[in-house]
C-alpha cells in the first residue's frame, strides 16, 4: 500500500491505511491556541485513528494513556520539532479525536498494540524514539518488543510492564477497584466522567493551572458517557490475580524487556502517587540496567502537565547523545 505520510489534499477511499482528509483544525479556538496541529487520520487495524505528524528527522512517537489524548504532550511537540525531530502523536483508539468504540469487547491490550503497530507500519517509521506513558507503556512497549527493528530508543514514564501486582493502590477497593467495578464504572466514569474530569485534576501538581488550561479540553474530548467507555475498561485490564486476561502478555513483556538492549531513558514524576517513583522507576531500572535515569521531575501521574518542557529537554539531550555516539562509531 502506498504511504503518503504528509500529503495534502487527497482522500483515499476504501481499504486500510492513511486517509489524508486535509481537514482544517476544527477544534474550538481556545483549544486550537494550544493545539495548532493539522489533524491526520489513518485506518489502523480497522479503526479511524487520529494523529499529528510535525517536523522532519528521526521520528519521536509520543504515546498517551488513560484518559488523555495527544494534547497531554502539547508543551513537548514544538521543542522537539525545533530540535530537528519528526514528532508523531497518535490518539489511542477510544480517546481524543480517534474513533471511540462503544462495546467493551472492542478493547484489549493486544488489540491496542496492534492498532499502534498498524500506524507505525503505514507511516513506515524506523529509528523511532518511543515515548511511553500510562497505557502507552504496555501498548507501546508491546509494539517495540515485537518490532525492534523499527525502534531506536525508549523513554518510559509513569507506567509498568510486568505481571501483578502493579501497585498497592490498584489492589485497594477504595477508590480504585470501586471506581471501575461492574455498573459502578459506567456510572462514575461514564455518566459522571470521574476520571476524565476530577481524576486527572487530582493527579497533577499545579491544579490551578490545569483547571484553567487543560481540564475542559480533556473533558470535552470525551463528551458523552458512551465515549468514555475506555476510561473504565482500561482499569479492568490491569492484572490483579492469576486469572487476569492480560497476565500472559505482561509476562511476555517483562521477559522481552529484560533482554532488551535498546537505549532507554526513565523519567518519573517526583510526586507520582499512582506509580510511585521509588517502586516503579527502580523496577524499570532493574529490567533495563543500561537505561539512563531515572530522572525525577515535578509531577504526579500526569507529569507532562507539570514538566512538559523539561521532559522535552531530557528527550532532546538524550537523542543528541545517541546521535553523537552513532557518529563516533
Amino acid at each position: 500500500m502506498a504511504v503518503k505520510p504528509k500529503g495534502t489534499g487527497t482522500r483515499r477511499a476504501g481499504g486500510g491505511g492513511i486517509v489524508d482528509l486535509s481537514l482544517e483544525n476544527t477544534l474550538p479556538e481556545a483549544v486550537r491556541a494550544q493545539w495548532p496541529y493539522k489533524p491526520r487520520y489513518a485506518d489502523a487495524n480497522g479503526w479511524r485513528m487520529h494523529y499529528i505528524d510535525e517536523g522532519e528527522g528521526d521520528p519521536v512517537v509520543l504515546l498517551h494513556g488513560n484518559p488523555t489524548w495527544g494534547f497531554l504532550y502539547r508543551e513537548m511537540i514544538d521543542p522537539l520539532v525545533r530540535s530537528g525531530r519528526r514528532v508523531i502523536v497518535p490518539d489511542m483508539i477510544g480517546f481524543g479525536l480517534s474513533e471511540k468504540p462503544t462495546r467493551e469487547q472492542a478493547h484489549s491490550l493486544d488489540g491496542h498494540a496492534a492498532n499502534l503497530t498498524a500506524l507505525m507500519r503505514q507511516l513506515d517509521l524506523t529509528r523511532i524514539m518511543l515515548v511511553c506513558h500510562d497505557w502507552g507503556g504496555p501498548t507501546g512497549l508491546s509494539f517495540a518488543m515485537s518490532n525492534p527493528a523499527r525502534v531506536r530508543a525508549l523513554t518510559i514514564m509513569s507506567t509498568w510492564a510486568w505481571p501483578l501486582p502493579p501497585a498497592e493502590f490498584h489492589t485497594r477497593i477504595f477508590p480504585w477497584r470501586m471506581m471501575h467495578a461492574p455498573l459502578v464504572g459506567p456510572y462514575l466514569l461514564g455518566k459522571h466522567r470521574a476520571l476524565a474530569g476530577r481524576g486527572v485534576y487530582l493527579s497533577v501538581v499545579d491544579r490551578e493551572k490545569f483547571g484553567r488550561s487543560a481540564q475542559a479540553v480533556y473533558e470535552s474530548a470525551l463528551p458523552e458517557p458512551a465515549s468514555r467507555l475506555l476510561t473504565w475498561v482500561w482499569p479492568r485490564w490491569i492484572p490483579l490475580d492469576e486469572n487476569a486476561r492480560a497476565l500472559p502478555r505482561f509476562r511476555w513483556l517483562e521477559q522481552k524487556l529484560s533482554q532488551c538492549k535498546l537505549p532507554a531513558m526513565i523519567i518519573w514524576g517526583r510526586e507520582d502517587d499512582v506509580f510511585d517513583a521509588a517502586t516503579f522507576s527502580h523496577r524499570f531500572k532493574q529490567l533495563l540496567p543500561h537505561a539512563e535515569g531515572p530522572f525525577l521531575v515535578t509531577g504526579r501521574h500526569f507529569l507532562q502537565e507539570d514538566s512538559g518542557p523539561e521532559i522535552a529537554d531530557l528527550i532532546r539531550h538524550f537523542l543528541n547523545r545517541l546521535d553523537e555516539r552513532e557518529r563516533s562509531q
Binding site: 462495546r103 467493551e104 469487547q105 467495578a181 461492574p182 455498573l183 464504572g185 459506567p186 456510572y187 461514564g190 455518566k191 479492568r236
Partner: peptide, 8 residues
C-alpha cells in the same frame, strides 16, 4: 445504564 462485563 449498561454493563458489558458484570462478572469482572
Amino acid at each position: 445504564l449498561a454493563e458489558d462485563r458484570v462478572a469482572h
